[in-house]
């Protein structure tokens, strides 16, 4: 009896609180409607939709005739896709390595308490303000075989010199890499510099006392200390690599032939040119899988152990 008497008012109070709670903070919830809609409809909804329809045989319009993994089998049997994946791998590994090395080296040099630091940083970073289209078109012109780098070197007397990446199948990817590095390394440098500047000055005193040379201090002591910054840089570079699209469109349009194709170009052509929707969905799902492979270990490392507010 006593128990029943105790619980009754409790449940009553709960019932009285519940409707109030839903209405509490209403303005904040209203303000978040765009975010909630974006998350639910676009990021979750649209992504799942694409994954789902990649199992259909949609051509011009999406339709719900499911064919299992047929699109994926066709995808991995298509030369152009395999070339794209190969290019992405080469471009990805090289641009990751060079971005990190160049970015860190530049940051370390700017960190040496030099004069005109601002001027140097402004020059290294300005390409990042430019679009990939502008970047691609400028480098298309600089690498032009008739008037560009090749001609300059030949005019200097080395007449047999040959460097024509944009029209040579085997090295076209390096032509794109040059442009991509020019555009993106400034950002990596900025990140690294912020990381290096965040390190306690005492580390430098200690390493000087120990008689460790400057460059060795950077490699052995500083790099491990800015690990979080490097991890962030790796994730940003990786996300950028998978998406690479505008640059290739502007610089080579995927040519010569299919030599500089990338997954994003394949997706776009299948979806908006070739009227082969499901094939495009399957290819874009593979892009999503690639990002997930990079992102999940990172998220696990970053948020797995500790909680951030």
């Amino acid at each position: 009896m006593a128990d029943a008497g105790m619980t009754k008012p409790l449940t009553d109070r709960r019932a009285a609180v519940r409707p109030v709670r839903a209405w509490r903070n209403m303005n904040a919830k209203v303000a978040s409607i765009p975010m909630v809609a974006t998350v639910l409809v676009i990021f979750i909804g649209c992504s799942l939709w694409t994954v789902l329809y990649s199992f259909t045989d949609s051509k011009l319009l999406p339709r719900e005739r499911f064919v299992g993994l047929e699109q994926y089998e066709r995808l991995w049997g298509t030369d152009r896709w395999l070339v794209s994946i190969g290019n992405l791998a080469v471009f990805g590994v090289l641009s990751m390595v060079f971005s990190l090395v160049i970015g860190f080296t530049l940051a370390a040099m700017l960190d040496r308490k030099i004069r005109f630091e601002n001027a140097f940083r402004t020059i290294f970073l300005y390409p990042f303000a430019l679009s990939f289209i502008v970047t691609g078109l400028v480098w298309q012109w600089i690498l032009n075989p008739t008037y560009g780098v090749q001609k300059v070197v030949r005019d200097l007397g080395w007449t047999s010199f040959s460097f024509d990446p944009l029209y040579t199948d085997s090295i076209v990817i390096y032509g794109i890499l040059i442009a991509a590095l020019w555009q993106g390394t400034g950002l990596v440098m900025c990140l690294m510099l912020a990381g290096i500047r965040g390190i306690d000055e005492d580390i430098w005193k200690a390493s000087r006392v120990e008689g460790i040379s400057v460059w060795k201090t950077y490699i052995v002591i500083i790099i491990p200390m800015i690990r979080p910054v490097i991890v962030t840089a790796v994730v940003i570079i990786a996300a950028g690599i998978v998406k690479v699209y505008d640059l290739v469109v502007a610089q080579t349009s995927g040519g010569p032939g299919n030599a500089s194709q990338m997954p994003a170009l394949y997706v776009m052509d299948k979806m908006f040119k070739d009227q082969n929707l499901a094939q495009g969905f399957a290819a874009s799902t593979m892009m999503l899988v690639t990002v997930a492979i990079v992102l999940i270990p990172w998220a696990y490392l970053e948020f797995g152990g500790k909680r951030r507010g």
Partner: peptide, 22 residues
């Protein structure tokens, strides 16, 4: 929702382009 929003920033645009048309 904030966490998903942040993760969403990494989804390749190509994955969402067509459904957004719809």
């Amino acid at each position: 929702f904030f966490a998903v929003l942040m993760i969403g920033a990494f989804i390749p645009y190509q994955v969402m382009l067509y459904p957004i048309v719809l």
